[in-house]
Each structure stands twice: as C-alpha cells, then as structure tokens.
Amino acid sequence: MRTVTVEDVTIGEGLPKLIVPLVGQTSEELIKESEFISQLPCDIVEWRVDFYEKVLDFSIVSSFSKTIKKAIKKPLLITFRSKKEGGEKELPTEQYFQLYQEIIQNGQCDLLDIELFMPEKEVSETIALAHQKGIKVIMCNHEFHHTPSMEEILSRLQKMQDKNADICKLAVMPNTPEDVLTLLTATETMYREYADRPIITMSMGALGMVSRITGELTGSSATFGSAVKASAPGQIPIGELKEMIETLKLS
C-alpha cells in the first residue's frame, strides 16, 4: 500500500495521524484559533472554510489560506463541507469547484477535501489540477442518519480509489452497536483486501466514539479530534485522543 506524505507527516504508516478542525467564523477568530492549535499535539489542521464568513469571496479565502498556513506551522487540509454532507453553508456546485480552483491556483494548502458524489467531470479536473500543484486529495462521504451495509461501505471507498483520490474517507452515523461493528469490520476488510492507499473511517456520535481510537487495529490511518469546537458529532478533545491512541498502540 502506498502512503501519503505532506511535509514531515506520513499518512498510512505508524499510528493514526491526528487532525484538528479550524472552525472560526471571522478572520480574527481564525488567527487566534490557528495560533492555539499550533501548540497542540496534532499532525494536520483542517480549515473548514464553510464556517468562514467570507467564504463567498474566493480570492479572500485563497489569500487567507497563506496566513493560516503560516500560523499553524503544520500541514493544512482545506475543506468546504456541503450542506447535504453536514456543512454550514450551501454553495452551488459550480461555485464549489470555482472556490477550489482559486485555492489550488492562488492559495496554500497541502491537502484538499473533495466529496465523492460531486459531478464526475469536475471532480476529475479538480483532482488533476491539485496533483499538478503537489496538493493531495482526500475524497470523502458522510452519512449523518444511518450506517450503510458493509458492502455499500466497501463500494464507496473503492469508488474513491477509482477516482484517483490520494486518501479515501467515510464517516457514518450509527443507530445501534451493530452499526459500529459494521463500520469497523468494513474498514478492516477494506484495508486488508482492497485498499492500495490510506483510508480514514469513523462512526460518529457518542455511540461510535470507539471508532476514533481503533484505527491502528482496523486500518484507518487518521482520526479527527477537537480543539476549540467540534466539527462533527463525537469528536474527542485532541489531548485526550492522543493519549488514548498512545495507550492502545499495538507495539
């Protein structure tokens, strides 16, 4: 299996990497949050630009990404999470890709989040453009109401590989303990039988919290923890998350 390296962080080897979201709404909040997160024991910072009050001014977003990158002193993942997948704002598909093209061409980031069920042509073009600039792509899908079958989880992760994502990410919502086990089993099966690049999976909410600390066992190569505010249900404060993962490490 190939790994993904951004700066001095290699995703897909060793313990799961720790990712913390930036969710400030104003530039001032984001700068303070970035400076705070730079001191935390995380590997990667995710800027959730759908929280940003100036997100509709794409040039401001791309320019400000350089400010954030300098402040965090860590690899930067940029994400606009669509409303249908749990994001803060709605953005027409055309503008979603325009925003990303502006960030790729004139901003600064190490990784870019692209959703699986966006139009195929635009997804392919955006991935190709990101790769030209040395930016790695995390392709993702979120289910906020249920956990799909094991077969469907495997199918979606394999589709992400087929679309040339560097990292494949899936988050689901459990309604029963069996749902959590379905996600964990599917993750381990994907990792063992089908994956040729890093995968990231999680079962959200309190019920699925265990999935955020078992990545080394199941093959999930990164996990998300909170700093100031969680960006998804069930995120564990990053300091506690790091301690849990270190305690549970296999070797």
Rank of each mutant, 00 (worst) to 15 (best):
V61R: 11
S62G: 03
S65A: 13
K66P: 01
K66N: 08
T67M: 09
K70I: 00
A71H: 14
A71N: 14
K73D: 12
K73W: 03
K73I: 00
K74T: 05
L76C: 01
L77T: 07
T79N: 05
T79S: 11
R81C: 04
R81V: 02
K83G: 01
K84H: 10
K84Q: 11
E85F: 04
E85A: 05
G86Q: 04
G86C: 02
G86K: 05
E88Q: 13
E90F: 11
E90L: 06
L91C: 00
L91F: 12
L91S: 04
P92G: 01
P92E: 11
P92T: 02
T93R: 06
Q95P: 00
Q98F: 07
L99W: 12
Y100R: 15
E102F: 04
Q105V: 00
N106P: 00
N106S: 14
G107P: 11
I114D: 07
L116R: 03
M118Y: 06
P119I: 07
P119C: 06
P119Y: 07
P119L: 04
E120S: 13
K121D: 15
K121T: 15
E122F: 06
V123R: 15
S124W: 09
S124P: 05
E125T: 12
E125P: 08
T126L: 08
I127H: 11
A128V: 09
L129Q: 15
A130K: 14
H131P: 09
G134L: 14
G134V: 12
I135P: 13
K136M: 10
I138D: 01
M139K: 03
M139I: 01
C140M: 11
N141A: 03
H142S: 01
H142G: 01
E143N: 13
F144L: 13
H145G: 13
H146G: 07
H146P: 02
T147Y: 09
E151N: 12
E151W: 03
E152M: 08
I153G: 04
L154V: 09
S155D: 12
S155E: 11
R156N: 01
Q158F: 00
K159E: 11
Q161Y: 09
D162T: 08
D162M: 07
K163V: 00
N164C: 07
A165C: 02
A165N: 02
A165Y: 03
I167N: 03
C168Y: 02
K169Y: 08
K169S: 07
P174C: 03
T176E: 09
T176V: 01
E178T: 07
L181M: 14
T182D: 09
T182V: 15
L183K: 06
L183C: 05
L183I: 08
L184I: 10
L184S: 08
T185F: 08
T185A: 14
E188D: 08
E188I: 01
T189Y: 08
M190G: 02
M190P: 00
Y191A: 12
R192W: 00
E193I: 03
Y194D: 03
A195E: 05
D196S: 09
P198W: 05
I199S: 04
T201Q: 05
M202V: 10
